[in-house]
Every structure is written in C-alpha cells, then in structure tokens.
C-alpha cells in the first residue's frame, strides 16, 4: 500500500470540470405550480417557506445560492453521529452506520450531477462513467467540487491490489470541527463521505466490495512526523471494486475510455 503510483492529479482541471455553468432553464419545463405547493393556510413552518416553494419544487438545475452554511452542516452532522453512537456497540459498527447514511446520497448525487452537467453549450454532453478511471475522475472532481467546493487532493491506484484505488483528502470538510477522543482514535467520521462514494460507484454499475475512510498519520513510523505537522487530518478513502468489475475492465482493455 505504501508504494503506489499516482494515476492522475485531479487538481488539473479535466475538460469536464464541474463548474456549473449558468444554466439554461429553458431546457426543463418549469415545475408544475399549484398542486404540490399549496399548503393549507394554517400549515406553516419549516416545510413550507414563505414563497411556497419547497426544495422539491425547485428547478433541478438551480445551483446558484445553493451553498449551505458550514456551521449548520456541522451541527447536523454532530446530531447524526450522536444518533448513530447511541445505537452501536463498537467503532466499526459506528462507521458502518455513517457509511449507510451516506450511501443513498451517493446514488442520487450521481444522477443529479450528470443531469446538471448536460446542458452546457460549450462542452459535449457528459456520458455516464462506464469505466473505472472516468468514474474516479468524476468522483474526485465533479462530486468533490459539488460537495466541498474543491477537488480531491490525490487519486492513486494501490500497487498491492489492482482492485483497490485510493482517493485522498488532506482535510475532509466533514471532519473540520471533530476531534476524535483518544480511546476511539481508529474512528474516522469521513466514513459518511465513504458511503457517498460507495453510492456513486454502485449507482454507476461498478460494484464495490467496500469503501472505507482511514487516517494517514498513524501507523507507519516513517515520515509520520512530517504528516503530523502538515495535514494531521489527512484521510484516504480506500475503494475496493468487486472482482467482476476488474474482470470486465480487463476484457474491455484499451478500447474506449
């Protein structure tokens, strides 16, 4: 695992960068007004904002002003973790639960982001990622930019196992306020993001055995000091594809891309 060759550096923008262009709303018929968005007058609250447009009535292409408060996410994530923590016995169990919370998000984000990238006039329409490499590119650039407003920091293929790929993030946003107590030092709450990745891979039809989040700093002694100083929260997402995916990839060989 230690010796691995970098496949690509996602910080160089790929042609299909995720910068959502000013969308052309004409592509999509406006959301049917009326039916869903007419609450009873007495029924107010969070569910129905004053303009009566819930998140479901909004145009799917609307990505302007869609950024969320980081503190709001942090508090929600705190509640997600403590909710999960009350129902688990161990660290592995807790990570599994966080993973399961992320999984459905990944399934939906794959479709949403592909849909959004389509109406760009200057670029060719994006096709579904059908091979491993385009899929990983999609994850490290499009997905990462959508979720965290920046690309992932590295993408590598494991030298030990051809079915394993590693996406690394120097400072995962979900962990930015979290200090894991010493007795649970194995726990990485970015398991939630790992679940999102797993959802994207499975949704694209490239089955995974598992996607897990790991700390980098601990364990190996060599260079640990340097890592400790620079990126103490560096996290690697280990993606293990199912054997049939690798087999298919080999059969398809060099053609296509």
């Amino acid at each position: 695992m230690s010796s691995s060759r970098p496949l690509s550096n996602p910080s160089f923008n790929s042609p299909q960068s995720a910068s959502t262009p000013p969308t052309a709303p004409a592509v999509r018929p406006p959301a049917p007004s009326g039916s869903a968005g007419t609450p009873q007058p007495g029924h107010s609250g969070l569910r129905y904002p004053s303009n009566r447009k819930t998140i479901y009535d909004r145009n799917l292409n609307r990505s302007k002003n869609a950024e969320l408060s980081r503190a709001a996410f942090a508090y929600l994530f705190v509640e997600m973790i403590s909710y999960a923590q009350r129902r688990v016995t161990g660290i592995a169990d807790l990570e599994k639960r966080l993973n399961e919370q992320g999984y459905p998000l990944g399934l939906k984000l794959l479709d949403l982001l592909l849909y959004r990238s389509a109406p760009s006039s200057t670029q060719p329409p994006t096709t579904r990622p059908t091979r491993i490499l385009p899929l990983l590119q999609f994850i490290t650039t499009t997905l990462w930019r959508h979720l965290f407003s920046r690309p992932a920091d590295a993408l590598e293929r494991s030298a030990a196992n051809a079915a394993e790929y590693m996406v690394s993030d120097n400072e995962p946003l979900v962990n930015s306020y979290i200090s894991v107590p010493r007795e649970m030092s194995q726990l990485n709450c970015a398991a939630f993001v790992a679940g999102i990745i797993e959802g994207v891979c499975d949704g694209a039809g490239l089955k995974t055995v598992s996607v897990s989040a790991h700390w980098v700093g601990e364990g190996d002694g060599g260079g640990a000091g340097a890592k400790e100083g620079m990126w103490p929260g560096k996290t690697i997402f280990l993606i293990k594809f199912a054997p049939e995916v690798i087999e298919r990839e080999e059969i398809m060989g060099g053609k296509g891309g």
């Binding site: 705190v78 306020y177 200090s179």
Partner: peptide
C-alpha cells in the same frame, strides 16, 4: 464554539479534551 461545541464527542459541562481546540 467551533471546536468544542461542534464536536460530537464532547459532552456539555464536562472537561474539554479536544485536540483541535488545543491546536
């Protein structure tokens, strides 16, 4: 507010042991 109150492993009113707060 950031590193203690937004830390899921901190219990309110208890001693603060948060690495990121220290840092």
């Amino acid at each position: 507010a950031d590193y203690v109150m937004k830390n899921p492993f901190y219990t309110v009113e208890m001693p603060i042991r948060c690495e990121k707060f220290d840092r």
